[in-house]
Lab assay of single mutants.
Amino acid sequence: MKTQEELTEIVRDHFSDMGEAATLYVQVYESSLESLVGGVIFEDGRHYTFVYENEDLVYE
């Protein structure tokens, strides 16, 4: 099982292909040891929320 830090790095790496991230945040109260819930805000103003669970990243 991966730590939240490892899950955060996986998510950060995925979003790095989409541009320069200004902020990546984790909603600790919705996350667990198995999943990471949060969002990313890019330098150009785009904002996505995400759920990373079971090696699957879903974002909108």
Rank of each mutant, 00 (worst) to 15 (best):
V51M: 06
E55R: 10
D17W: 14
G19A: 05
V11K: 01
D44M: 07
T49Q: 05
N54M: 07
F50S: 00
L36T: 03
L57M: 06
D44W: 13
M18N: 03
F50L: 02
F15W: 05
Y52Q: 00
V28K: 10
V51W: 10
E30R: 07
A21G: 13
Y29V: 03
K2F: 07
E53L: 12
N54I: 08
S32A: 11
T8D: 04
V40H: 00
Q27C: 15
F42A: 00
R46Y: 02
I41E: 02
V40F: 04
T8Y: 11
A21N: 12
D56V: 15
L7N: 03
E9T: 10
G19W: 09
E43H: 10
Y48N: 00
L33G: 09
L36Y: 06
L57N: 03
V37C: 11
E30W: 13
A22N: 07
E43R: 12
D56Y: 14
D17N: 14
L24H: 01
Y29H: 05
K2C: 14
D17F: 14
V51L: 06
E60L: 11
E55F: 11
G45E: 01
D56F: 14
K2A: 04
T8P: 03
Y59A: 04
R46W: 07
V58Q: 10
T3W: 07
V40N: 00
Q4H: 06
G45Q: 01
G45T: 02
R46N: 01
Y29N: 02
T3E: 03
L36G: 01
Y48A: 00
E9V: 09
E43W: 10
T8C: 15
V26T: 01
D56M: 15
Y59Q: 02
E30G: 06
E34L: 09
Y25N: 02
E20Y: 13
E55M: 10
S16V: 07
F50Y: 02
Q27H: 11
V26C: 11
M1L: 11
S35M: 15
V37S: 08
V11P: 02
Y29S: 04
M1C: 15
E53W: 12
Y29A: 03
D13N: 14
E60M: 12
G19D: 04
H47I: 09
D44C: 11
I41Q: 02
G38N: 02
G19F: 10
G38A: 07
G45H: 02
A21W: 13
E53Y: 11
S31G: 09
Y29W: 10
Y29E: 03
F50M: 00
I41C: 12
S32R: 07
E30H: 11
D44R: 04
Y52H: 01
E43D: 08
D44Y: 09
Y52T: 01
F15H: 02
G38D: 01
V37E: 03
L36D: 00
V40Q: 01
T49C: 14
F15M: 04
E55L: 09
E6I: 08
E9N: 11
S16W: 09
T8I: 15
E60R: 09
V58N: 06
Q27V: 15
V26N: 00
L36N: 01
E30K: 09
R46Q: 04
A21K: 10
R46K: 04
V40I: 13
L57E: 02
